[in-house]
Design a protein around this nucleic acid. Structure first.
Length: 647
DNA sequence: GTTCGCGGCGCC
DNA sequence: AAAGGGCGCCGCGAAC
């Protein structure tokens, strides 16, 4: 395999997907690489394989002189900074290498990111094989054969007491994690073809991306960001098992109490999570009218229905079900996954390493899983339906000697929406530092005689309408949310559109553009290819996606700030418009906070906002649930940038 | 026995 | 003409 042009595609085969397992608790090693495949730009290949210990899934890189020399060869190749490394989701391969003491150096490229940039996030699947078939009609039967062989090997291995991959520890498709059990020819064919596919995609897309300023900008942003995401995942967020145990006890007791109440009110033997049984119970047996219907037209027994029956019919069963489901959700939706994924960092510290998908959602946002730390419930947000609140944030907090900073953009989607649409009244309300939804309400309905006395009602209506616009909701949705008839809702929408003409004009413009051209490009360069049947989503993609790219830029800058000036500060989590940052106590200062905020504000001009974006700052000393707002920083922004008049 | 779509609900 | 956007995870139960 010559490397004249210094291009090298590579792919690791690993014993699973989760690199953060816990040998002590699992009885087997977490995912480690056992095979490496390479392709140069002429599709010449190399393949290096190590043995997996079937009893504990450990990989032995040093079992013989031969394997030691293979390892040395690998290390030299991957650590050579003059060779350009190309991978499909290369962050994963880099992490696998890192775990075995190989630091991948030099320029990197990622065909997964390329695919996302080129297709504007519009594909359903960005798997290497699917892309290979789509772009190059690459045959993809290699995996089928490998999978079949693995299935057989697993059956045999089970009898021998091998540590087979399981759903609990290795995710939805454990067979994939056991490819090492199959005959090596099959594994080799599969691995080598993946490296070739990767090279092919790279060659097909590289120049196209580099020659297009928008695509190049997004691609380079994402590549830079991939290093930041890796650091964030590697660092991990501290999980507090003792807190979790306390919470578990509390919620279990609460659930038991509610189940007792349910039992004595006719709920014995009823499975609350079975929509079918619930319909039988509440609609057929009790004779209640369905309040909502599912997409398929069945009666919908959701939290809102139960709440309604509990409150309006005094139905104790409905209330108890609601409460017990709330407690169950806390346990099975939050506490259980955390227990599964927790990893011991040292004697005192347990950590969760979430898995971020940098190029998942169409809009350019992140998604997160294993566990999803973007959806950790907070008692203060969400629509509360139950007495019981979900408090999983009490099981997270800064490591010893650190404090958390939680900077967040204030109403970023509203700012982006207003300034992209150049809706004068809305921009003015923001620049004047007014209560935004209150100001919108006044603009739209301020002349009504009841406006003053019903201010909070009108404000709420304005807010709901704003979000309906943002999400592409129609009149029926407005009617539902404002608890009014479609006829009334239509009037609200018309009044809104008349008084805030910028919004409807902008929405029309984007929708038409999407219809005519099939795509739109956000101000930070990201392209969205829009399904002609869903052009109404264009505006949402613009607003949500622009906000996402603003935060992505900020993350890159903040990471660079930390590397340059504030060693040992770490971005831990990103939550769409918010970051969680771990800061050593010795650095804790307004100065550092201001510098972080400044890095988040630099993109204002890109979207025509004449002031730095407003950023709030909170700190958490002990638990994520216990945050303190640093109001003085918000005040500094207001004092400096709020203008009372606008020309 | 496994796979997959759906409903429900957590986050932004 | 009308359409709430973007995610991940759990549990159920029909389909395979």
């Amino acid at each position: 395999m010559n490397l004249k042009d210094k291009l090298l595609a590579f792919d690791c085969e690993a014993t699973g997907l989760n690199p953060w397992g816990d040998l002590e608790r699992w009885g087997s090693y977490p995912a480690r690489p056992y095979a490496f495949s390479f392709s140069n730009s002429e599709f010449e290949t190399e393949y290096v394989r190590f043995q997996v210990n079937p009893k504990n899934r450990g990989v032995n890189y040093f079992e013989s002189f031969l394997s030691i020399s293979r390892f040395e060869w690998l290390k030299k190749l991957l650590e050579d900074p003059t060779i350009i490394k190309i991978g499909h989701n290369i962050g994963y391969d880099i992490r696998m290498c890192r775990h075995i003491g190989i630091e991948v150096k030099g320029e990197i490229h990622d065909t997964l990111i390329m695919a996302h940039v080129v297709t504007g996030g519009s594909l359903l699947s960005y798997g290497l094989k699917e892309l290979g078939v789509r772009i190059a009609e690459f045959p993809d039967e290699d995996e089928r054969d490998l999978k079949e062989a693995t299935r057989k090997a697993r059956t045999a291995g089970k009898k021998l007491g091998w540590a087979l991959a399981t759903k609990e520890l290795h995710g939805r498709d454990p067979i994939k994690a056991d490819y090492w059990m199959a005959p090596d020819e099959l594994c080799k064919r599969y691995a080598v073809q993946d490296a070739q596919r990767t090279m092919f995609l790279f060659l097909a897309w590289h120049d196209r991306i580099m020659n297009d300023p928008s695509m190049r900008r997004v691609y380079e942003r994402e590549i830079a960001l991939s290093r930041v995401v890796a650091k964030m995942e590697n660092r991990g967020t501290q999980f507090l098992p003792d807190q979790a145990t306390k919470l578990r006890k509390f919620y279990e007791a609460y659930r038991a109490k509610q189940l007792e109440i349910a039992d004595t009110n006719g709920g014995k033997g009823l499975n609350f999570r079975s929509p079918k049984q619930m319909v039988t119970k509440f609609i057929d047996e009790k004779g209640y009218e369905p309040i909502y219907y599912t997409q398929k037209g069945n009666p919908q027994i959701n939290g809102d229905s139960l709440k309604f029956w509990h409150e309006n019919k005094g139905d104790k069963l409905a209330g108890a079900i609601l409460e017990s489901k709330g407690a169950s959700h806390m346990i099975s939706g939050f506490l259980d996954p955390y227990e599964r994924f927790k990893v011991k960092e040292n004697d005192k510290t347990w950590v969760l390493h979430p898995n971020y998908r940098q190029c998942g959602p169409v809009t350019g946002r992140f998604s997160c899983g294993d566990p999803n730390l973007m959806q950790v419930a907070s008692p203060t947000t969400g629509r509360r339906k139950t007495e019981i609140t979900l408090r999983p944030r009490e099981a997270f907090g800064p490591r010893n000697g650190y404090i958390w900073y939680l900077p967040d953009y204030s109403q970023i989607e509203v700012w982006v929406f207003s300034f992209l649409a150049k809706e004068h009244a809305m921009c003015e309300a923001l620049l004047q530092g007014r209560d935004f939804h209150g100001a919108v309400a006044e603009k739209v309905w301020g002349k009504l005689p009841t406006f003053e006395s019903d201010h909070s009602y009108f404000r709420k209506r304005a807010k709901l309408l704003m979000f309906c616009k943002l999400y592409g909701g129609g009149v029926n949705k407005v009617a539902y949310l404002t608890d009014s008839t479609p006829e009334e809702a239509e009037i609200f929408v018309r009044e809104f559109d008349t008084q805030l003409p910028g919004i409807s004009t902008y929405m029309k413009r984007m929708t038409t553009k999407a219809e005519r051209e099939g795509k739109i490009i956000n101000p930070l360069g990201r392209t969205y290819y829009i399904d002609p049947n869903f052009c109404y989503r264009a505006v949402n993609y613009m607003v949500q996606g622009t906000s996402a790219d603003i935060l992505k830029n900020a993350m890159i800058r903040i990471d660079s700030l930390f590397t340059r000036k504030w060693n040992d500060c770490h971005i831990l989590l990103t939550l769409h418009d918010e970051l969680v940052i771990e800061v050593p106590l010795k650095y804790h200062s307004k100065k550092l906070m201001r510098e972080i905020i400044a890095e988040m504000q630099r993109d204002s001009a890109e979207i025509g906002i004449p002031v730095p974006l407003p950023v709030g700052m909170k700190i958490a000393k002990k638990y994520w649930s216990d945050t303190i707002e640093i109001e003085s920083l918000t005040k500094e922004w207001k004092d400096k940038y709020i203008c009372k008049k606008i020309n």
